[in-house]
């Protein structure tokens, strides 16, 4: 796979890979490369400074450095997006695998449940759950994970159902393999490729919803540096365009990076598009 990324003429995949790598590095080294502290360095005398050589992205209504806040914001957004996708992936594989393998009433109940969750646009349900639980970072990740798993569950289930009657699975069963072994070692590896594509494409979406929740005031609370919350700071201070423009661009670039990788991987796994 790595060879494909490096050698194939897939520009979008490469660009996506570079963007994401860059943001991951920024998130790790934010405390070294930020010129100011994102929260503590307030200076009312320096508020609403336009972008310049001291403050690359200008300053906000409390005189904080927007550049440093954007760098620090990457930590929250990347972490929240990844944790959400990993939890959903985990829950989805277990629920979808169980539903497909056991079948019968377990299948019926689990799939009806996932249908109910999927009959909402993700943002609306996340908003309701986050508001009810109380707005903070953990609850918004929890709310997003609660609504994200059905996609993975349905994909896993469809693969499990299509494979569980095949000859090699029967052979494994005759050799005396247990149910768990058959499910995890024989059947599930078949859907890892599609699950990974789905997860990469979802990472972008999860970051968008997470920052959206913060934008609405239902996620991360001030004064923490979070991109969505920073965009909403700019709503009331409309004439100072830099306050919301740079965090917005940051969200956009991470999402587009994840989508480029997801698209590229799909082309790689589905030779029809190559």
């Amino acid at each position: 796979m790595l060879q494909y990324i490096l050698h194939e003429k897939n520009t979008m995949l490469k660009i996506g890979f570079i963007i994401c790598l860059l943001w991951i590095l920024i998130a790790i080294f934010a405390s070294f490369i930020s010129p100011f502290d994102p929260v503590k360095d307030q200076n009312m005398a320096m508020r609403f400074q336009p972008p310049g050589k001291d403050h690359f992205f200008g300053t906000d209504s409390l005189g904080r450095d927007v550049f440093s806040r954007v760098l620090y914001g990457s930590r929250l957004s990347l972490a929240a997006g990844m944790v959400t996708v990993i939890i959903s992936l985990f829950v989805g594989i277990i629920i979808g695998g169980t539903a497909g393998y056991v079948g019968g009433w377990a299948d019926e109940i689990l799939m009806r449940l996932s249908e109910m969750i999927q009959s909402f646009p993700p943002l609306i349900l996340a908003m309701v759950i986050a508001a009810a639980l109380g707005p903070n970072i953990y609850n918004s990740v929890l709310a997003m994970s609660m609504i994200w798993w059905p996609n993975y569950a349905r994909l896993t289930r469809s693969v499990v159902i299509s494979i569980k009657e095949s000859d090699y699975v029967t052979a494994a069963r005759l050799m005396g393999a247990g149910h768990l072994r058959i499910l995890f070692a024989e059947i599930l590896p078949n859907c890892f490729g599609s699950l990974i594509v789905m997860a990469t494409l979802d990472l972008g979406n999860a970051i968008l919803v997470f920052s959206g929740l913060s934008f609405l005031g239902l996620g991360v609370q001030p004064p923490v540096a979070e991109w969505g919350a920073m965009v909403s700071d700019g709503v009331t201070t409309f004439n100072y365009w830099w306050i919301s423009t740079f965090p917005g661009l940051a969200i956009f670039s991470v999402a587009i990076g994840a989508n480029f990788i997801g698209d590229g991987l799909r082309d790689y796994l589905d030779p029809q598009y190559r």
Binding site: G204, L208, F215, V231, S244, P247, G248, F252, N259, D263
Partner: peptide
């Protein structure tokens, strides 16, 4: 390539921010 980039941008833009930009 350009149109694909535009369509990926479409699904990657945070709509709350895009709305603000378009409005301003």
């Amino acid at each position: 390539q350009i149109l694909r980039a535009v369509s990926v941008s479409g699904v990657s833009l945070p709509s709350f921010w895009f709305a603000l930009v378009v409005m301003s």
